[in-house]
Design a binder for these strands. Structure first.
Length: 434
DNA sequence: TGAGATGATTCCCT
DNA sequence: AGGGAATCATCTCA
């Protein structure tokens, strides 16, 4: 206290007596050469005031209050406060001043951007996010996946809610505390040299402190979203084998379109619907199947035969039904008698070729065309092998004749496919390429 | 438990 | 953009 009072007295003496104080000084500078007694008197006056200020805490409350009031009303008070504020500004606060103009924190910006992108901050995006959408697309529309998806959305919404609640709390607390401190400082500015600038600076400090807390909140929110997201995206890799039925449907299509196992978008959609999987899963499946078939045709031969037989059986039923139908409805059938000697290597290819000729889509014409082609196939199979256990016959059905010399499949629109229905008996494609 | 099967992903090419 | 090829990760089964 003594030191402080001495310092203040010295400072006050220098500034006030030395006329170096700028702005708001009520005291006119004394004329040159007349500093002597008058100047000393003023110094003494100010010294007294400062002394009174410094010793005010040693006095009783009433006494202090009275003294405070007296000081507040003192004619020198505004000038003195102004000087003290300026001194304060020039000394202690200059250090803080350097930190004032903080550039926007890049980490905070990153966090903000991420939270915005994830749909945690910013406008509500229906609880979803880019991750959810991407994962939803990747994982397909099966019930399990939609459960996972909704689970993800629910968790993200939860995170979002917590984040906003906490953020609101922080903002409220920040505002309350700022107001409190401002009031306090304003109040104290009556008795302490506190300039509005200093109050402003204090508010800035408070805001920075709170924003650092906010940053922690943002960081932990980001972490939570990342964990959620990684868990969800990891789930994409978790694969489940397709159902036996789905695999059969896909295989049937594959082997019945062996010359061109490239289902159109429509066909993919249809297959996806039938198999309860996504179109992209159908694409994946065909991609994998083509490559694996090509890599090891021998291995798939048995499977091909199996599906040939299966297709034939299916066709047999269809034929039976069709024949029954034709007998009752129409005495003549366009194709019933024309293909007795038809040697079809691949019933589905037949269908495909018809499809190509007709330009029909898979959905629209497949059933009808397939039944028709199966009639011929079945006849051929039965005529040639007398049963399905005959390996030779089966092989003739699904010989890997459709791979060209480059190891690629022939184009569906190439003449070889188109002309195959008109090929004569024994037109089983050669397998020279393999 | 290991090998093979299989769905998914990634990179590259056309 | 779609497909081929390589590869990864997981599932299935003996």
């Amino acid at each position: 206290m003594d030191d402080q009072s001495r310092m203040l007295q010295t400072l006050a003496g220098v500034n006030l007596a030395g006329h170096s104080v700028q702005g708001g000084m009520a005291l006119p500078p004394p004329p040159h050469g007349h500093e002597g007694a008058d100047g000393d008197g003023r110094k003494q006056d100010i010294g007294d005031i400062l002394h009174q200020i410094m010793t005010i805490t040693d006095q009783s409350l009433d006494e202090a209050q009275a003294k405070k009031h007296a000081l507040n009303c003192h004619r020198m008070k505004p000038a003195l406060f102004s000087v003290l504020c300026e001194i304060k500004e020039k000394t202690g606060l200059s250090i803080r001043g350097a930190q004032e103009e903080d550039p926007p924190d890049p980490q905070l910006m990153r966090l903000d951007n991420m939270l915005l992108a994830e749909g945690v901050s910013g406008p509500e995006k229906g609880g979803g996010s880019a991750a959810a959408a991407a994962a939803a697309a990747a994982s397909g529309g099966s019930s399990d996946n939609s459960i996972e998806h909704s689970d993800y959305r629910a968790k993200l919404t939860q995170i979002r809610q917590i984040y906003h609640t906490e953020l609101e709390k922080y903002e409220q607390a920040c505002n309350e505390f700022t107001t409190h401190v401002m009031n306090l400082l304003r109040e104290q500015s009556r008795t302490r040299p506190i300039s509005p600038k200093e109050i402003e600076r204090m508010v800035g400090i408070i805001h920075r402190k709170f924003s650092s807390i906010q940053m922690q909140l943002k960081q932990s929110t980001c972490e939570a979203v990342m964990i959620l997201r990684s868990r969800f995206l990891d789930a994409r890799r978790k694969r489940r084998n397709f159902s036996k039925q789905a695999t059969e449907i896909l295989n049937e299509y594959f082997y019945s379109h062996l010359s061109n196992p490239y289902p159109s978008e429509e066909a993919k959609e249809e297959l996806a619907k039938k198999c309860s999987i996504t179109v992209s899963q159908v694409s994946n499946w065909f991609g994998n199947k083509r490559i694996r078939y090509k890599k090891n045709i021998g291995k798939f031969q048995e499977e091909a035969n199996l599906y040939a037989a299966k297709t034939a059986v299916t066709a047999a039923h269809a034929v039976a039904a069709a024949v029954q139908n034709n007998q009752t409805n129409s005495p003549t059938t366009p194709n019933s008698g024309s293909s007795g000697s038809f040697n079809l290597p691949n019933s589905g290819d037949m269908f495909m070729n018809m499809q190509s000729l007709n330009g029909d889509s898979y959905q629209g014409s497949q059933v009808g065309a397939n039944v028709q082609s199966q009639v011929d196939t079945l006849r051929h199979v039965i005529n040639q092998t007398g049963g399905y256990s005959d390996g030779l016959g089966a092989n003739s059905l699904y010989s890997p004749h459709n791979l060209n010399a480059n190891g690629g499949w022939q184009d569906a629109t190439t003449p070889s496919s188109v002309t195959s229905p008109t090929e004569g008996p024994g037109s089983v494609h050669s397998d020279t390429s393999n």
